[in-house]
Simulated assay, not measured.
Amino acid sequence: MLKKCMGDPSIIIPIEDIGIKDRLSYEEIPVQILDRQVCKLRTKEVASVKVLWRNQFIEEATWETEEDMKKRYPYLFETGDIPYQGTNSLLSTLSVIS
């Protein structure tokens, strides 16, 4: 059975403050590059970077092509301190973060 609810206007948050788009979606923003690797194919090499996204844990970081990430998010590559291959670079990055 439904009960009558008395709304409290003081706890209503304006939609403008939240930043949700009309389609009720939001854009993930990359925070940091954790690792870099180069996959060698027969005729070419493909560089990939492991990207940490906002509002996600390190375990949920994804591998993206370096070329696409440089086009879309050039500010991630301006510092030049991208760790290279291996878990040791990831562990050193984690120690710097904490």
Score class of each variant (00 low, 15 high):
residue 1 M to N: 02
residue 1 M to V: 03
residue 1 M to S: 09
residue 2 L to M: 05
residue 2 L to Q: 02
residue 2 L to A: 13
residue 3 K to Q: 04
residue 3 K to M: 09
residue 4 K to L: 13
residue 5 C to K: 07
residue 5 C to F: 13
residue 8 D to I: 12
residue 9 P to C: 03
residue 10 S to V: 02
residue 11 I to W: 03
residue 12 I to N: 02
residue 13 I to K: 10
residue 15 I to Y: 10
residue 18 I to S: 04
residue 19 G to A: 02
residue 19 G to Q: 01
residue 19 G to W: 02
residue 21 K to V: 01
residue 22 D to Y: 07
residue 22 D to S: 10
residue 23 R to T: 05
residue 23 R to N: 11
residue 26 Y to M: 11
residue 29 I to W: 09
residue 33 I to Q: 03
residue 34 L to E: 00
residue 35 D to I: 02
residue 38 V to S: 06
residue 40 K to A: 07
residue 42 R to I: 05
residue 42 R to Y: 06
residue 43 T to I: 04
residue 44 K to M: 09
residue 44 K to G: 01
residue 44 K to H: 08
residue 46 V to M: 14
residue 46 V to P: 06
residue 47 A to N: 00
residue 48 S to R: 12
residue 48 S to E: 08
residue 50 K to I: 00
residue 50 K to N: 02
residue 52 L to F: 07
residue 52 L to V: 00
residue 53 W to Q: 02
residue 55 N to T: 03
residue 56 Q to E: 09
residue 57 F to P: 02
residue 59 E to I: 12
residue 60 E to C: 12
residue 60 E to K: 10
residue 61 A to P: 06
residue 62 T to L: 15
residue 63 W to F: 11
residue 63 W to K: 04
residue 65 T to E: 13
residue 66 E to D: 09
residue 67 E to D: 08
residue 67 E to K: 14
residue 69 M to Q: 04
residue 73 Y to G: 04
residue 75 Y to I: 06
residue 77 F to C: 03
residue 78 E to T: 08
residue 78 E to Y: 10
residue 78 E to C: 09
residue 80 G to T: 00
residue 83 P to D: 02
residue 83 P to Y: 08
residue 85 Q to Y: 09
residue 85 Q to L: 13
residue 88 N to E: 09
residue 88 N to I: 06
residue 89 S to K: 09
residue 89 S to M: 09
residue 89 S to D: 04
residue 90 L to T: 00
residue 91 L to K: 07
residue 91 L to I: 04
residue 92 S to W: 07
residue 93 T to L: 15
residue 93 T to I: 01
residue 94 L to V: 04
residue 95 S to C: 13
residue 95 S to E: 10
residue 96 V to A: 15
residue 98 S to A: 14
